[in-house]
């Protein structure tokens, strides 16, 4: 459903071209939970942001449900973006709107009536177990709760996919669990496709059924994690293993030994 075809991004900084994402082709299936992993600066966040054109691609195409996102004008792009929810590392909630108003926000801008938006928002808050905090402001919530509100907001317009940019990197291990559980339920129960950028093997292991590994702007490997034993050919696994915390290791130890 999300197809990247030779999509690339080159930044121009102080007179030099810097390749953030080399021409990349990837297919992410409907309902899949797909991970993008790599060390910082590998281009994984840029690649994710090319999907909803928060970054304009330098070349190539992005197809979402068969629609060429890269060819859309501003108005059509805004409509297409409603089918692609996004979750950020820093939550990016509106501080002066209540939890409920944050979740109604995407519905409001899509022109839904106040009552319909409110009903749907409460439904989504219920899904992330935060319906009782609807009238609080984001500042009154913990980091994990804020991220769950952000997830509720992202799923409110019933998107077919969620783009998650380091969704747990600002959280401690315990709250990370709760956020990953929430994402997993959204993937399993609602059938929403997940594309998650992370540098943590823990997150990949818990959340993803396939992962692409990025290095210096290239996808150097794609691993299907449902296959056992999973097959990895590059030595990235070892490197990631070293960077990941010890409890995160088992899956990749398994991979690294192949």
């Amino acid at each position: 459903m999300i197809a990247l075809q030779d999509v690339s991004k080159t930044f121009r900084a102080s007179g030099r071209d810097i390749v953030a994402v080399a021409p990349t082709t990837l297919d992410i299936g409907n309902g899949q939970s797909f991970g993008l992993i790599g060390s910082s600066g590998a281009g994984k966040s840029t690649l994710l942001r090319l999907i909803n054109r928060l970054e304009e691609p330098t070349g190539g195409r992005v197809l979402v449900d068969g629609v060429d996102i890269t060819a859309l004008g501003p108005k059509d792009l805004r409509h297409a973006r409603r089918l692609l929810g996004m979750v950020f590392q820093s939550f990016n909630l509106l501080a002066n709107r209540t939890v409920l108003e944050n979740v109604t926000f995407p519905l409001e801008i899509a022109g839904q009536s106040r009552t319909a938006a409110r009903r749907r928002a409460l439904e989504c808050l219920d899904h992330v177990h935060l319906a009782d905090r609807a009238d609080d402001y984001p500042a009154q919530l913990s980091g994990g709760q804020k991220q769950r509100v952000a997830i509720a907001r992202a799923i409110a317009p019933k998107p077919s996919a969620l783009l998650c940019d380091e969704p747990t990197s600002a959280l401690d291990p315990q709250t990370t669990e709760s956020v990953l559980d929430t994402l997993l339920r959204i993937n399993r129960d609602l059938g929403v496709t997940l594309v998650t950028v992370t540098h943590s093997m823990d997150v990949v292991r818990k959340l993803c059924d396939a992962v692409a590994v990025m290095e210096n702007g290239h996808v150097i490997e794609r691993i299907d994690l449902r296959d056992r034993p999973a097959v990895a050919t590059s030595n990235l696994a070892r490197r990631l293993l070293e960077s990941a915390a010890a409890p995160a290791a088992p899956l990749f130890r398994e991979l690294a030994h192949v």
């Binding site: 973006r81 409603r82 709107r97 801008i109």
Partner: peptide, 30 residues
């Protein structure tokens, strides 16, 4: 106003006017 919040609104498909009224002005209101 946090650039991340502006970006989130863009990612949700906010029009420029919605961005100004519902994000920039609301968030900067105090």
């Amino acid at each position: 106003v946090s650039p991340g919040v502006i970006e989130a609104a863009q990612a949700m498909g906010a029009t420029p006017l919605q961005l100004i009224v519902k994000v920039l002005i609301t968030e900067a209101a105090p």
